[in-house]
């Protein structure tokens, strides 16, 4: 692990992901489940939960990023634009700090909505290496 290391992966907000998140979170706010309601608020269709991106980040850090076994210590996410069903979101991560003394790594993440051509979120993740 070294500062400057980069990795990427693309995720899809599939119906399976969306429905599983609905069950897990219990958040059935009309904005997230009712296309007509979302359109009345100015969106083209229902808006996906921003926390779905957090799920992708969790998978990316825990299962994809080449850091081995890690423990998520902090996750600071700024949502930049809404995502919708079937959107593809690419995570681009860069290691910005490796603290060897305490076995921790900080990563800067940009989540780009490839379907909409815009940034969906930015995040700062701190993980402990095991």
């Amino acid at each position: 692990m070294r500062e400057g290391l980069e990795a990427s992966r693309t995720y899809t907000i599939s119906p399976e992901v969306y429905e599983a998140f609905l069950v897990a979170s219990g958040d059935v706010n009309p904005l997230h489940v009712d296309d007509e309601h979302a359109r009345r608020l100015g969106f083209p269709e229902k808006v996906m939960h921003g926390a779905i991106l957090g799920c992708f980040i969790s998978h990316f850090v825990g299962m994809h990023f080449p850091a081995g076994a890690v423990v998520l210590q902090s996750l600071d996410t700024q949502l930049k634009s809404p995502c919708h069903l079937h959107d593809q979101v690419r995570i681009d991560a860069r290691v910005t700090q490796v603290a060897e003394a305490v076995g921790a790594v900080v990563m800067s993440l940009v989540l780009t909505n490839e379907t909409r051509g815009r940034v969906a979120a930015k995040a700062r993740v701190q993980v402990g290496l095991r």
Binding site: Q73, A99, E100, A101, V102, G103, A104, V106, Q126
Partner: peptide, 24 residues
């Protein structure tokens, strides 16, 4: 223990230094 890690990370960032396990 977690805030100890946070402290070391913040000091490294704040002063532009890096510590080794043996040092701290």
């Amino acid at each position: 223990s977690l805030n100890h890690i946070n402290l070391i990370l913040a000091v490294e960032r704040g002063f532009g230094v890096r510590f080794k396990t043996s040092e701290i």
